[in-house]
Write a protein that binds this DNA or RNA. Structure first.
Length: 564
RNA sequence: CGGGACGUGGCGCAGCCUGGUAGCGCACCGGCUUUGGGUGCCGGGGGUCGCCGGUUCGAAUCCGGCCGUCCCGACCA
């Protein structure tokens, strides 16, 4: 592409409200513009990169035998009612002119399953893998970080249909391998981690995570790679404090004005791990007292797996149930309240609230002084033991770029997607679903690969392979040479951008080229002719790699093959 | 949904506290200059100061309400 006359708006400054590096650079480099909160337009150069990721994804999906569909974005509400997913908070809902309830799709399990229910009849029709690139709409409570968390975005979503769980396992594995190839080809650093099934429901899930400080998720990971999981479900071997001898009985003591774990630790001189944190929530079935060590944080999502939906308790509710304020709560002598303790509480003896203001108990022992259900409800801390290898776990912020779910029959049952097995029995199709956010892949690549001058695109994602900066006027010999080289490189199959703008200063061209970040930049000016060499800059590291004029095109093709 | 901040030409910002009718840099247009790292000089165009209402002789500035955007938390395939 010749740049002159084309639309490529770059910015010297990033918008004031951009925070994430990828957000700033995508806007500055003229790839995207914001329409409203969580709504972004891709501009021509940004769209070129989108096309490149989607091409990689499409190739790898096709390679595992998946077939491409295109499903509607707007759906009748009844299908979502059938699976119990109508009315979710983040679901956009509307009515057609006849008053019929419609939804805008946040994902397409229901629609795929609806089609499968109509078309798949026999085990001979299975397995199938169906995919699409389609717009998803989600009324996010808080769009953020540029393109990382938005209300409308394109997703590659695929769905596997199998006769049984063994088949699902094969489809799942095929997708995991395809995803590995996709993210490798895109030049990303990534991990596959165990993940929570969330609103998808189902039997198991993994997420593909690109490490980045801009990430919204956190994973716990053993340095050897023996274990990696989203902290939403990560487990660990906790480090026990030195409890000393266990007292024969619990004993009350005065703690005037003490309300927090920090204050209690200072007051008692004990490490936070020997204190017991008491958190009161209200579930659909009534009040719940959740207990974790003072050094630990309660994980809401893990608690949800035990007690279901819940909300924090109000101070007046707490006083009614416990007879004390939030600063002096504990499990001893409590009646009519469900008590869930983190598994670590089963070891040792603790200081807890006495359920009398300004008073605590020491030497409190689970099983002797109170009873509780045991569960994993704490957030893993960095340095705690890996459940597989025992290594100290590391916590790392990550961007979720893909996920894979074993759905089982969660959707096929309610929507009647069944087939006739070889034995003549009617069975439900066993399903999986698999997502990738192409725009997130781009943002993650930029987060992981940039420098002070701008984006450093992995070659698979760059809008162009080669960016030629022409220093010289339109009628000059340099321009003629640039034209010739442009034609040769294009003929060799490369995507080439020729900055042939007249009246744009060389300095500006260089700065903009580095902002955009294509893998190779060529500079053609007076120094180039007649004898060369041709000045070549590899964007990653900004190294010079000059080549002789003779055979320059072939040398550049070869060089491109070597860069990441 | 809770907490915080911001909203002034396309972008980045000052002015607001202490009311007197809008300014700077970049970008843009014209001229000259310059042609290997956002060139230099000269001259221009462009803003109902987010919206509505109130106070006042007078509001970008003070007060109230609303809207928008961002950040932290909650939430989130």
């Amino acid at each position: 592409m010749r740049l002159s006359g084309r639309f490529w708006p770059t910015l010297r400054d990033a918008p004031a409200d951009a925070e994430a590096v990828s957000h700033k650079l995508m806007v500055r480099a003229g790839l995207v513009r914001q329409l409203a909160s969580g709504l972004y337009s891709f501009l021509p150069f940004g769209l070129r990169s989108v096309h490149r990721v989607t091409a990689v994804i499409r190739e790898e999906m096709d390679r595992i035998g998946a077939q491409e569909f295109q499903l509607p974005v707007m759906h009748p509400a009844e299908i979502w009612e059938a699976t119990g997913r109508y009315g979710l908070d983040e679901q956009f809902r509307l009515e057609d002119r006849g008053g019929r309830a419609m939804v805008l799709g946040m994902t397409h399990e229901e629609i795929i399953t609806w089609h499968a229910a109509r078309e798949i009849r026999s085990y001979r029709d299975l397995p199938q893998s169906w995919y699409q690139f389609q717009t998803k709409l989600r009324d996010e409570p808080r769009p953020k970080s540029g393109i990382l968390r938005v209300r409308e975005f394109t997703m590659k979503d695929s769905y596997s249909l199998d006769a049984d769980e063994a088949g699902l396992a094969r489809s799942y594995e095929a997708h995991a391998e395809a995803y590995a190839r996709i993210f490798d080809r895109c030049g990303l650093e990534w991990y596959m981690v165990e993940s929570d099934v969330g609103m998808m429901g189902g039997m198991g899930a993994h997420e593909f995570m690109a490490p980045s400080p801009a990430g919204e998720d956190t994973i716990a990971r053993a340095p050897s790679g023996a274990y990696a999981a989203n902290v939403e479900l990560a487990t660990s071997v906790a480090v026990d404090p030195d409890f000393g001898p266990t007292p024969a009985s619990a004993e009350a003591f005065a703690t005037p004005g003490i309300g927090t774990i920090d204050e209690l630790a200072v007051f008692t001189g004990l490490p936070a791990g020997r204190l017991c944190k008491s958190v009161v929530v209200v579930s659909d079935d009534g009040p719940v007292l959740a207990l974790v060590r003072g050094a630990h944080a309660l994980h809401e999502k893990k608690l949800s797996h035990v007690v279901g939906r819940h909300r924090p308790a109000q101070p007046d509710e707490i006083r009614a149930w416990f007879g004390a304020g939030p600063g002096s709560l504990g499990p001893v002598g409590v009646e009519g309240v469900r008590i869930v303790a983190d598994a670590t509480i089963a070891t040792g003896h603790y200081v807890t609230g006495a359920n009398r203001d300004g008073e605590h108990l020491r030497g409190v022992v689970l099983g002797r002084d109170f009873d509780a259900e045991l569960a994993d409800i704490r957030t893993v801390l960095a340095g705690e033991g890996c459940p597989v290898s025992g290594e100290p776990l590391e916590l790392e912020p990550v961007i979720e770029i893909g996920n894979i779910f074993k759905l089982g029959t969660k959707y096929s049952d309610p929507l009647g997607a069944t087939y006739l097995a070889a034995d003549g029995q009617e069975r439900s199709i066993v399903m999986g679903s698999y997502g990738i956010g192409p725009a997130r892949v781009l943002a993650a690549a930029i987060e992981q690969s940039h420098d002070d001058a701008g984006i450093v695109w992995p070659k698979a994602l760059a809008p162009f392979d080669v960016h030629i900066v022409l220093v010289g006027e339109a009628a000059s010999p340099q321009a003629a040479f640039a034209d010739a080289l442009y034609a040769q490189l294009s003929d060799a199959g490369l995507a080439v951008l020729l900055d042939d703008r007249d009246g744009t200063k060389p300095g500006e061209k260089f700065v903009e080229a580095e902002l955009l970040g294509c893998p190779i930049r060529l500079t053609i000016g007076k120094r180039t002719l007649p004898d060369g060499p041709l000045e070549v800059q590899v964007r990653r590291g900004r190294e010079r790699n000059d080549v002789p004029l003779h055979g320059a095109a072939a040398a550049i093709v070869a060089l491109l093959g070597q860069v990441r």
